[in-house]
Simulated assay, not measured.
Amino acid sequence: MANGLMSIGTFSRASLLSIKALRAYHAAGILVPAEVDPATGYRAYLATQLADAAVLRRLRALDLPLSDVGEILRARDPDRTRKILTGHGELLQERLARIAQAVDEIHSSIEHPASLTPVYVRDEPAIQIVEYRGQVREADFPSFLDTAYAALYALLGRLGVRPNGPSGALYPPVVDDVEEVVAYVPIAAEAQLPDDRGPMALGEVPAATVAVLTHHGGYDSIADTYQLLGRWVAEHAVSADLQVREAYVISPADHDDPERYRTDICWPLDRWPSTTEGKTR
């Protein structure tokens, strides 16, 4: 949105919270939109609310009751947060320091985004791919991608076709409880697939102008990079209704150390001003 507000769809993708969850958190008074259109009921959020969304998402992943999550967000007090988490059970004790550090890092990254890898804009051409589709829950993303890439690379090996770039995946522009995920490997030219190819097919990733932010490290913290990129899009551009792309520049297939992983998150744009802070590459 031009005014810096984020539609519920854009906020959903940036925060990795489903629209269904955002509506529930609004109803519970935990994450209230900055604006609700009285005529249409459409919700809009401030980019600064991504910090609260990230804290909320992490606490809910620990099965913390909504009432406690709401109290933590309202209090914004580390001591109160520790007291609530301690009371949630001994199981949380081992995670307490990591959670407190994550919350501090989230707020720091939102307040000082320039200290991280900058967002830039680039034009991506259409590419031919061999793809593997599935309806997947977020918790099952790793196992789905492992299965998909094993099958894709095995098929290309049988055909004697070399990949034409790093593997990638496409995710819908709006987060849902179950999403259609497309794992793919680029190829230089269209190939003839055998009849016993299983769920794999030829496809194309369409040309698009994308905002890019590179995530450094393992996938457990990729949500932080999504919120930074989503905030940049909300403040500088207009999001296109296309699948978000992840390109696994350095993946587990390339290195055993997750700290060495590099993932380009590519957010399709409908339009963007020429005077943004990002740099075209």
Rank of each mutant, 00 (worst) to 15 (best):
T280A: 14
Y226C: 06
L152K: 02
A188R: 13
I84M: 11
G87Q: 14
V212N: 05
L155D: 04
P252H: 02
L56Q: 00
A54W: 03
R260V: 08
S274K: 09
L17T: 04
F11L: 09
R13L: 13
P252I: 03
V249A: 04
A24C: 03
P142H: 12
A28M: 06
Y120C: 12
D52L: 01
D68K: 07
L46Y: 04
T209V: 10
A54L: 03
G134A: 06
G41P: 10
G218K: 06
Y261P: 13
A61I: 05
G4V: 04
F11T: 06
E235S: 08
A24R: 09
A154I: 10
V55A: 08
L159M: 10
L269F: 04
A240W: 01
H88I: 03
R271T: 13
H216R: 00
G203L: 03
D104R: 08
L116I: 01
A97F: 05
P113N: 01
E71F: 00
G217D: 00
G165H: 04
G278D: 06
E277V: 10
L202S: 08
V205P: 00
L145G: 13
V249W: 05
E179P: 00
N3Y: 00
T263F: 05
L152E: 03
G4F: 03
Y149F: 15
R122E: 14
N164W: 11
G165D: 05
D254S: 12
R23K: 03
D264V: 04
P268M: 05
M6G: 05
P78H: 02
A247V: 14
V119E: 01
R98G: 14
L229E: 03
Q101T: 14
D176M: 12
V36R: 11
H255R: 11
L159P: 09
V205D: 01
R43G: 09
L46F: 09
L5V: 08
D254K: 11
L213Y: 01
R137M: 10
L170G: 06
P163M: 03
Q243W: 03
S12Y: 07
R133M: 07
A201L: 07
Y45D: 09
L56D: 05
A21G: 01
D177G: 14
D264Y: 02
Q93R: 13
G278W: 06
L193D: 11
Y261F: 15
K279A: 12
L16W: 06
F11D: 09
Y45A: 08
Y184E: 08
S115M: 01
S274W: 11
L62H: 12
I129M: 05
A39D: 13
P186I: 00
I250H: 07
I84P: 13
A75K: 15
G278F: 08
D270C: 06
